[in-house]
């Protein structure tokens, strides 16, 4: 991993990867959304509202993966003092927050016609809302921590501690009785009929690629800002 401690080496891979990920993401999202809107049949109970799942599930997955990424980057910051880990975590946070918010919003829009309510304080909904607030807290804390110094340890500790919410979100529907249904797709199989399921992998991979591209863009921006600041400082002192 320390091969990438040199930003130049990281950028040599990140620059072309950004474009490819963005193109792949948009293509797959378009295919999945078109398939999900026009090709798949409606659900036997929910009717047309089922189609929101092709957006809701990827945003939930990325909202949670985003924090997993922050936690892993935090570990690299604390243990190995990797110089890019903090940049990566700060780049992920607003993107993860956006996807967590989209997950809550699409879920709410689906809940109104399906359950008959926009919002209920059940285990799954509440723990996902907590994740969104953790992101907001992390963004503020990481920005303040960066002002303080370059090691970013305070934000990293918060990133690791916040990760305990991830298993809570995942298992909330198993541990407690919730209004939210259980897992439809597990390693052992899926309770979604195949003719309804197929656009989901497309949007899952598509939004993941888009997420990756957004994070890379933000990382490159921060590296470029750091470089510009260093150059300005040199100009002033000369």
């Amino acid at each position: 991993m320390h091969r990438f401690a040199n930003p130049a080496r990281f950028l040599r891979i990140a620059r072309p990867a950004t474009g490819w990920l963005l193109a792949l993401g948009l293509l797959l999202i378009a295919a999945g959304v078109l398939g999900g809107l026009f090709v798949t049949p409606p659900d036997y109970l929910q009717g047309e509202t089922v189609r929101i799942l092709y957006i809701h599930v990827p945003t939930a997955w990325l909202g949670m993966s985003g924090w997993s990424g922050i936690a892993i980057a935090s570990l690299f910051t604390i243990v190995w003092r990797h110089p890019l880990a903090g940049v990566a975590a700060r780049a992920i946070a607003p993107v993860g927050a956006l996807f967590a918010f989209l997950c809550l919003a699409t879920g709410s829009i689906w809940g109104r016609p399906t359950w008959g309510t926009w919002w209920e304080w059940d285990g799954r909904l509440t723990s996902m809302l907590v994740l969104f607030f953790l992101y907001l807290g992390y963004i503020a804390l990481a920005a303040a921590d960066k002002e303080r110094g370059p090691d970013g340890r305070v934000a990293a500790i918060f990133g690791l501690v916040g990760a305990v919410n991830l298993p809570i979100i995942h298992f909330s529907v198993k541990w407690w009785r919730t209004l939210h249904q259980g897992e439809s797709i597990e390693l052992t199989g899926s309770s979604v009929a195949p003719e309804l399921l197929w656009p989901l992998p497309l949007t899952l991979v598509g939004f993941s690629a888009l997420f990756g591209a957004l994070v890379l863009i933000r990382m490159r921006t921060e590296l470029a800002e750091t470089k510009a600041e260093a150059r300005l400082k040199r100009m002033v002192t000369q």
């Binding site: 036997y44 399906t114 359950w115 309770s191």
Partner: peptide, 13 residues
């Protein structure tokens, strides 16, 4: 208040 609880199965009609 009555809320409908949906289960985790999704299938065509």
């Amino acid at each position: 208040t009555i809320l409908a609880k949906h289960d985790e199965r999704y299938m065509p009609p």
